[in-house]
């Protein structure tokens, strides 16, 4: 915190003194009609009350909004709950159980017949891919390559947007066509500190856990026939993980 508080206090004091000077000018030199003042104030109050009605109408017609930040237990932060969710998700991934795991959302699904013995996996246009590509060898050689794209389910819906790639088979190449970067904007409404005093849902309480966790937790999971040899190029060579069941 250091010197921020005194500096902040000084700025607040400066604003207060400026306002005081403004008040004196306003109330001392300019005569304001009492009736006119109440008319203006009445219009403002009417606007505020109308916005209150519109607000509850909007809130009632909108989607159910559960806060994506898990409720805090006594003496712990919301990030602990995220740690638990992410840990379970990656645990399921590395044990090859992502398909059955409830906390993983399926974002894309592709199946290909592929009877060959070698397969090159790479991105289209050689764009680097930094996500995880998990490769699992099936128990039998069924001649099918199954690709699934998963994302962790953090319960935030639009708060964790995903832009899944397209997976294509062209000859002996499995190509991951990365989409063009999409921009997402989310508004997160926090209660005023006056309300948050009794509810604990203010800016300081909510923003703490989100920044860290709205990152990439997507996985491209490939199930390949037994004995299929996988080749990669520089675009994904650091992304591939082989899963042992």
């Amino acid at each position: 915190m250091g010197l921020y508080l005194p500096v902040g206090l000084f700025i607040l004091l400066l604003i207060a003194l400026l306002m005081a000077a403004g008040f004196k000018t306003w109330t001392g030199r300019v005569r304001l009609s009492f009736r006119r003042v109440w008319q203006v104030t009445g219009v403002y109050l009417a606007l505020l009350l109308a916005s209150l009605a519109v607000f509850y109408a909007l809130a009632a017609s909108g989607k159910a909004e559960t806060l994506p930040v898990p409720e805090k237990g006594p003496g712990e932060g919301g990030e602990n709950e995220y740690d638990r969710i992410l840990s379970a998700y990656y645990d399921a991934l590395f044990k090859g159980r992502l398909e059955e795991y409830q906390g993983a959302e399926l974002q894309g699904k592709w199946d290909f017949n592929y009877p060959e013995r070698r397969l090159l996996v790479r991105t289209a246009e050689k764009r680097p891919y930094y996500g995880i590509i998990a490769v699992e060898e099936k128990a039998a050689d069924d001649g099918r390559v199954e690709a699934r794209y998963y994302n962790v389910s953090l319960g935030g819906g639009d708060l964790f947007p995903v832009n899944p790639p397209e997976v294509k088979l062209a000859g002996e190449v499995l190509e991951i066509a990365l989409p063009r970067r999409k921009e997402f904007m989310t508004f997160f409404f926090c209660q005023d500190f006056t309300s948050a005093q009794f509810t604990g849902k203010g800016v300081a309480d909510i923003s703490s856990g989100l920044y860290i966790y709205h990152g990439d937790h997507q996985v491209l999971y490939l199930k390949v026939p037994r004995g299929l040899e996988i080749d990669t190029d520089a675009s994904i060579e650091h992304s591939v993980t082989f899963i042992e069941r």
């Binding site: 970067r181 921009e183 508004f187």
Partner: peptide, 8 residues
Amino acid sequence: SETVTHKI
């Protein structure tokens, strides 16, 4: 990331 820009 390479596919998403997300602002809150």
